[in-house]
Simulated assay, not measured.
Amino acid sequence: MKQNFTVRQGALDGVEVFLSIAHHRSFRRAAAELGVTPSAVSQAVRVLEARIGAALFIRTTRSVGLTEAGERFLSRAKPAFEELVAASEVARGLGQRPAGLLRLSVPRAVVPILLEPLIASFCEAYPEVEVEIAASAELVDLAAEGFDAGIRLGQFVDADMVAVPLTPPLRLVIVGSPTYFAQRNRPESMDDLRQHACLRRRRSNGSLAPWSFNDNGHALEIAVSGPLIAHDFPTVLGAAVEGIGLAQLPEPMVAEGLREGKLVHVLESFAPVIPGVFLYYPDRRQIMPKLRAFIDHVKSRPLGHGAAPDAG
């Protein structure tokens, strides 16, 4: 059964004074080291002894010694206090300069863009920062999972996050391979999609993402059907290139396939515009220097149109 406990108020009060006196074996020299008066040192010791419930020092007109209780307290308090000071120094260092582990939650499709050249150039510029990339389509809770920041399409970034745009708004376009259209007519209307194999994507919440359209300024969503369901955009893209079916994807993802003739556009006039890719993180008041350095680095080298992330 878990025991109830509280941290006693002022539990560390007087410990530094005690350690200084024990080191110098002098109240006066301890006062000089700490920059306080000898009377303040004496008062701190009296309060500490009263709180502990035992005398810690043996004082005479000529010398200062430790009682048995003082010796035992010193043996445990000294290494603990030194460790606490060291911990404070480590934390202070992380709060003053870019250093430590920077954990990023990113979609798999964005990883190549981050690695080449963004992460490489960041690591070169900030050698004291270690970058950990968790590539997943899951929309994680950054704080709960211990991430410093994430990258996602804008519509999947929570309103309470600070978001930094990495790309302009993107179009969602429908594409298919020449192989696929060798045996089928190209769709001319949204209704024609009922006669086509449409590749679908399952969101991280378990639902199937509908296809979105812009019909003369009106936003529409249509449930489509087809032979394949994937959990991320890259898998959908690969299936479209192989001729398995039509895919609706962020335009940057299909740019290379279109240039190389592996994919062709259809229903272009119905393509909706969605928010672009964003770097997002919790309240800016909590930013550590390592994240601030990464944000500034990203702003100086924004992601281009070469890829787009998996959505949630």
Rank of each mutant, 00 (worst) to 15 (best):
T179K: 11
S207W: 09
E49N: 08
L19T: 05
L56A: 05
H297R: 02
F181Y: 10
V131D: 07
S189I: 05
P165G: 10
A69C: 01
F5P: 02
S269I: 05
R202K: 12
F147E: 00
V85D: 03
E221N: 15
E82N: 01
A80L: 13
E68L: 14
E71K: 09
L104Y: 07
R184E: 13
K290I: 00
G70F: 04
F122N: 06
L12N: 08
S39F: 11
V236F: 05
L74I: 07
V47F: 05
T61V: 05
V36T: 13
A137I: 00
A32T: 11
S88G: 15
W211S: 14
V224C: 15
F147R: 04
R72H: 02
F27M: 15
I229L: 09
A99Q: 10
F156I: 03
Q195D: 13
F213C: 14
F18W: 08
A87E: 06
G93W: 01
Y280E: 10
R97T: 10
G217N: 04
A91N: 03
L114Y: 07
P169G: 11
I274D: 13
E260T: 07
D283K: 09
N185A: 14
T60G: 12
S204N: 06
A109T: 06
A307N: 06
A255P: 01
N216R: 12
F18C: 07
S300T: 06
R201D: 00
E130N: 03
A239V: 00
A197V: 03
E89N: 08
F278R: 13
R103M: 05
G65Q: 12
E251H: 11
V273W: 08
A109K: 04
L220W: 08
R46I: 13
P98S: 10
A54Y: 04
N214Y: 05
K2N: 12
F294K: 07
P234C: 08
L258T: 06
S42H: 11
L228S: 08
A197L: 11
T167C: 12
P127M: 03
Y180P: 09
A240V: 05
V85L: 14
L139F: 04
E128A: 15
S204D: 14
E124V: 05
A255C: 05
L153I: 11
S225C: 06
A125C: 09
F73Y: 13
V110G: 02
N185K: 11
